[in-house]
């Protein structure tokens, strides 16, 4: 391909687990051109952006708001230009307006809706406590997302999940169940946001990364 720009730009919000995601990208995509950065200019240059994240919404929001919100604006513009965006965990959650985890701190507001905590004290059919954080493998049911199988197992680590506003019809494209049914993935135009961690979801996770790249980036 003659386009000299980096194909992928992984945004470093200081939220850990970057190396895991980088390793998974390299395993899934081979010798792909990848930059890891928090420079808004690099985001603007990139063909596709990946925002991983494990940690707290508040810190993530602070990282986005640095330098007068330059990074947040670069990401919003990237999405508005219908360029590919893959958000993982917090990288999904920040697409929304805000989170119960950090009242008063905003997300990117690309989508209407909020991030809510799992309800405490839920019991499953056997009377066992539904534990928070939701940590481990869960079955995801998806509909109409090219990158996701209709049913697949993925690895989750989170206490909060996104709740799109009622008028965001068709945004939520995959669900899983943990005491309650929650949104496991959203997709619109070139944006894919997943609540689980493809980088820890073995073959299915690497396959998702590969399909995202093939369908959205390397067209």
């Amino acid at each position: 391909m003659s386009d000299a720009r980096p194909h992928l730009c992984m945004v470093d919000l200081g939220m850990g687990n970057l190396r895991s995601v980088e390793r998974a990208l390299r395993a899934a995509l081979g010798d792909v051109s990848l930059v890891v950065t928090r420079d808004p200019g690099a985001v603007r240059e990139a063909r596709a952006v990946i925002v991983p994240g494990q940690g707290a919404f508040g810190e993530c929001s602070v990282a986005l708001a640095r330098d007068g919100g330059a990074l947040a604006r670069a990401l919003v513009d990237h999405i508005a230009a219908a360029k590919p965006y893959l958000g993982i965990c917090l990288g999904l959650q920040v697409l929304f307006e805000g989170s119960e985890e950090a009242p008063g701190r905003g997300g990117l507001g690309v989508f209407k809706g909020h991030v809510r905590r799992f309800r405490e004290g839920m019991r499953d059919d056997d009377g066992a406590l539904v534990k928070i954080p939701h940590m481990g493998w869960n079955e995801v049911r998806a509909e109409g997302v090219p990158c996701l199988p209709a049913r697949g197992w993925f690895y989750f680590v989170h206490s909060y999940h996104v709740v799109p506003a009622p008028d965001e019809a068709g945004l939520a494209r995959a669900t899983a169940s943990h005491g309650e049914t929650f949104v496991a993935a959203v997709s619109r135009a070139s944006v894919l946001g997943v609540q689980f961690h493809p980088e820890k979801s073995q073959r299915e996770g690497l396959a998702l990364i590969k399909r995202f790249y093939d369908t959205e980036v390397d067209r």
Binding site: V130, K131, H134, G136, W137, N138, E139, H178, G179
Partner: peptide
């Protein structure tokens, strides 16, 4: 269905 039991 909830989170799967894990084998480690």
């Amino acid at each position: 269905m909830t989170v799967a039991r894990r084998l480690i």
